[in-house]
């Protein structure tokens, strides 16, 4: 992800990489040879003191986020932190507290699906009543990544905080957050098919309004080389299907705004679009837009689209889902709206 953000700095208006920071000096050389003309540091504090950057992108594994995040905030440097905010709820809450102490400081979190206008448009369709009363939904994230026991931090509870749910499923949870806000209760089954962490989960999310939905997240599915996020919402007037690439609305009868039958919006034709995309097949527009959004929040003092409050909502939900998975019980979600 660091390379993706570094390359975006070459094309997002006003962007420039001022310094590279990593513990591994060879990695620094490798990134410099890609074309990043910036000095390398193995100490973030030294880099901040010497370079005085306008912002810092934290694109490390989540177990390393907190100390760097707190350092940046304490020095008054705006931060873009990759998702999830942290591997534990305690770290995430500490980071939120640090950010709350400096409310004027821009803090953004890398949930790129929140920058996809299709999910926001789906939300608008729901709240405007096009769907009637939303009754239930099905949501899934699938990818082809894990087909045997894997090594590395991504597959350890201690460093990643879990398996497929926290590493990949958190994007789907953010998309659901855009659509419906925060659920109040969760019930979860998880299974480590190949690993000690969960490789697949199934969950039921319940909302204060009475809406409920089923969530499936699985990174051991063949044929999904690109991660997919698909949500189907059933309402009393029709159905919405929304994913990375398309939003489809089906109405039993015409409404004031849409005809009966199917209406479709494609991501590739829905503004905002990116002026540059490094991965058009997988959220390339969103990677550009989230970096542009952060730069604008730093330069113009506007609130980032995904800030600490939104990221904490997902973190509280993740925590509740892991507690539900471990206990086998239905669990109340912290930070839920009444």
């Amino acid at each position: 992800m660091g390379i993706m953000h570094a390359s975006m700095m070459g094309v997002v208006p006003g962007g420039r990489v001022a310094a590279l920071v990593d513990l591994d000096e060879k990695l620094g050389l490798n990134v410099q040879s890609m074309g990043v003309e910036a000095p390398f540091y193995n100490d973030l504090e030294k880099a901040i003191d010497e370079i005085r950057p306008e912002g810092v992108w934290i694109a490390t594994p989540q177990f390393a986020h907190r100390p760097m995040f707190e350092l940046c905030v304490s020095k008054g440097v705006p931060v873009f932190c990759e998702k999830p905010l942290a591997h534990t709820i305690d770290d995430a809450r500490a980071m939120a507290a640090a950010a709350a102490a400096k409310p004027e400081l821009p803090v953004a979190v890398g949930y790129m699906l929140a920058h996809n206008p299709l999910f926001r448009h789906a939300h608008d369709l729901i709240v405007s009543g096009e769907l009637g009363l939303p009754c239930s939904f099905k949501a899934s994230t699938r990818l082809s990544q894990v087909f045997s026991a894997m090594k590395g931090w991504t597959f350890t509870k201690e460093q990643a905080g879990g398996g497929v749910l926290i590493n990949s499923g958190c994007h789907l949870l953010m998309a659901l957050h855009v659509l419906f806000g925060q659920p109040s209760r969760v019930t979860v089954k998880g299974r480590g098919v190949h690993n000690k962490v969960e490789d697949t989960i199934g969950a039921i999310l319940e909302y204060p309004s009475g809406l409920w939905g089923m969530v499936e997240v699985n990174w051991s599915v063949p044929g999904h080389e690109l991660q997919t996020h698909d949500i189907e919402v059933v309402g009393t007037s029709g159905t919405i299907e929304v994913g990375n690439e398309a939003l489809r609305l089906w109405l039993h009868e015409k409404s004031r705004r849409n005809p009966a039958g199917w209406t479709q919006w494609l991501r590739s034709r829905t503004e905002p679009l990116a002026e540059f995309s490094l991965s058009p097949e997988y959220c390339g527009d969103e990677f550009f837009l989230e970096d542009k959004d952060f730069i604008e929040s730093v330069r113009r003092g506007k609130k980032p689209r995904v800030g600490i409050a939104e990221a904490m909502a997902i973190q509280e939900l993740l925590d509740a889902m892991y507690r539900a998975m471990e206990s086998g019980a239905t669990v109340e979600v912290g930070g839920a709206q009444s």
């Binding site: 570094a6 390359s7 070459g10 040879s33 890609m34 074309g35 540059f276 058009p280």
Partner: peptide
């Protein structure tokens, strides 16, 4: 491949 071409463009790196 397009990601490599576009990486060269984004990084302004003709060596790629």
């Amino acid at each position: 491949q397009p990601q490599m071409t576009d990486l060269a463009v984004a990084m302004n790196n003709p060596r790629i």
